[in-house]
Design a protein around this nucleic acid. Structure first.
Lengths: 353, 353
DNA sequence: ATGAAAGCGCTAACAC
DNA sequence: GTGTTAGCGCTTTCAT
């Protein structure tokens, strides 16, 4: 429990307003009313005479009084704080999700406690505990694993976020529509006559991988092609992993000309590998990403990708948290295609529409 | 004030442990001691019999009891929460700073309330208020403007972070060493015989710009060159701005072969502009960035840049906050050079060592 | 419409 | 060493 014995107090500056040791009682005395009246004014309670309200408000203004949120929370039961547990705030996709949640929360006067789990169940558990003790009003979490036994009876409103979120029928969730995203990506590729993609995917333990691969296979089957010998390489969701995966693909006997990566970081890594191998993107190999992170704008060529609505994801998650619903709602937001330069746009002669 | 009337409570799952309505009193009764004893055990106070301690601990374990942090905070005066106000959590540099602070805080059992100010004084002010009301134990802030009148008498421990942080003598601060960073960048360039740089910088209102330009001029003077007709273009710290600035430079009569951008985003934008103009980087134009964001790894060519120790910045800021010092300490962390491919490495014949 | 009083769950004097 | 007693600053009945 970090303690802060050193209360840095400098200046006193211009206004000379005292440190916040003023309480509701002082206000009451100054305004010539009881502390209940002050409380009522401050909480916008009904049945307050216009006169009393104005007197109190005036004193509050003069003193610069701000009610102690802690005391208020202890009494009323809610803190005006929600928790957000994501894999890594330094990951651009998740940072954007956090930003979306933050903005939505800010609109409602709520603050956000952010934690990074690093996909580590232990860290995740620690963070859950911290959230509970902070008595947050609710939490938005991207569950590390598929089992949530520990958090199911958290006793606070929960919203799950991310690809695997929808799997928990009991809990409200918001995620992007992977299937639709894969569909528009593959649709685009098909329009350009790109043929079957080789896949670079994330870790097998995470259900996101299964879902992505399944969606790709479904989409390919739909077009009447076989999915049996689809190339699938692990890229661990990182640039380095993507590069290594691409190197393996390049070294193999198969010579795919179209790579579909399950996230942008891996796509970018693959792009580097392609370049380092002396090949050109998109002329020799087309690369399609999945995320829509800003880094894809500045690569050369720019990364064509299926963008997830990261910010909206965060915003909707927050809104879901505040709405009082009886049934667990499952929101699925659509992805959009961002065309940049990493996919060969000039279809060959034998192009099939 | 967001209220959460809907307490989603599902499952009851396996453990059937009740909702946290258990209090320290229940524990006391169950353990056959008084509530003070329980409190003492829970706060690791001295003078507790081994026997009592064990009985209490056992009951706590069985009930899964977790003390109400709110009540504890109200009484003890500290919340175990610190605030972090940065320009934008979706900005990779700041996200990394946040991550550093988060990790340092996590080690000490402290949680972090993160806010994005968007360089907007109003938003910043709102966030300050939220922090105060949440009764955080302290705050790390990157001040939007150079005046801090409002926050000087915050009454809570404060640590300033960022380039302009050191300007507030009264408040402890941590920032990266811009002068040293500029020096190693320009040193590198000089070694390669790159000549005078054209600068792409941020907005004039922020002191960071002045500091950067001043450092560059100082460094150039030191080498005996004139700094009078240094090219300086605004890039507003964004990719788009950097691209536009580069286009302006390209369109001008001056034909610099070396660009030094005050942040990586602008450097990356400049790189795009160079490419779009049909020129090559680094053969025709060398580009040096300043930040060290991951996106610089995946550009083509990779961005050579002066990296700020973003994560350490956050970590040190947090540590500064918790340390009890009497004097306001000013920490300045060194930058490091990351060589990638955007600076021409083969010096011309007329190279000066 | 307003005041008095009773806590929210916990920590910190103060007794013993 | 342990229990008793006050509150922390606020919201919320319950009277009036």
């Amino acid at each position: 429990m970090g303690t802060f014995p050193w209360k840095h107090r400098i200046g006193m500056a211009s206004s000379m307003k005292k440190r916040q040791d003023t309480t509701i009682i002082d206000i009451a005395r100054l305004a010539g009313v009881s502390k209940s009246t002050v409380s009522r004014v401050l909480t916008d309670a009904p049945n307050i005479s216009k006169d009393a309200r104005e007197r109190v408000l005036e004193v509050v203004r003069q003193t610069g009084f701000r009610p102690n949120h802690l005391a208020r929370s202890l009494r009323s039961g809610n803190t005006g704080i929600v928790g957000l547990v994501i894999p890594d705030i330094a990951n651009p996709f998740w940072a954007d999700v956090a930003r979306g949640a933050q903005d939505a929360a800010s609109d409602k006067g709520t603050s956000i406690l952010i934690f990074s789990s690093d996909w580590d169940p232990d860290r995740e558990a620690r963070h859950f505990r911290a959230l509970l003790q902070a008595r947050v009003d609710g939490a938005i979490i991207n569950p590390v694993r598929d089992s949530l036994e520990d958090i199911a009876d958290f006793g606070i409103p929960l919203v799950l976020i991310g690809s695997s979120a929808g799997r928990f029928a009991d809990l409200p969730s918001v995620g992007s529509n992977i299937e639709q995203g894969v569909a528009i990506g593959l649709d685009h590729a098909n329009t350009l006559g790109l043929g079957l993609p080789a896949l670079i995917v994330g870790d097998a333990e995470r259900s996101a991988r299964l879902r992505f691969v399944a969606a790709v296979k479904a989409e390919i089957s739909l077009r009447g092609s076989a999915t049996d010998n689809l190339i699938v390489e692990d890229g661990h969701y990182t640039v380095e992993g993507g590069r290594a995966a691409m190197e393996r693909i390049l070294a193999s006997s198969s010579k795919p000309t179209f790579i579909f990566a399950a996230n942008d970081l891996m796509a970018l890594g693959a792009m580097q590998a392609v370049r380092e191998a002396g090949l050109r993107c998109p002329e020799d190999i087309s690369i399609l990403g999945f995320d829509g992170i800003p880094a894809g704008e500045v690569s050369a060529p720019g990364l064509t990708t299926v963008a997830k609505p990261s910010r909206q994801l965060g915003a909707h998650a927050f809104n879901l948290l505040t709405e009082k619903r009886q049934t667990a709602e499952h929101l699925t937001l659509p992805c959009t295609l961002i065309e940049r330069g990493s996919v060969r746009t000039a279809p060959p002669l034998s192009c099939a529409i």
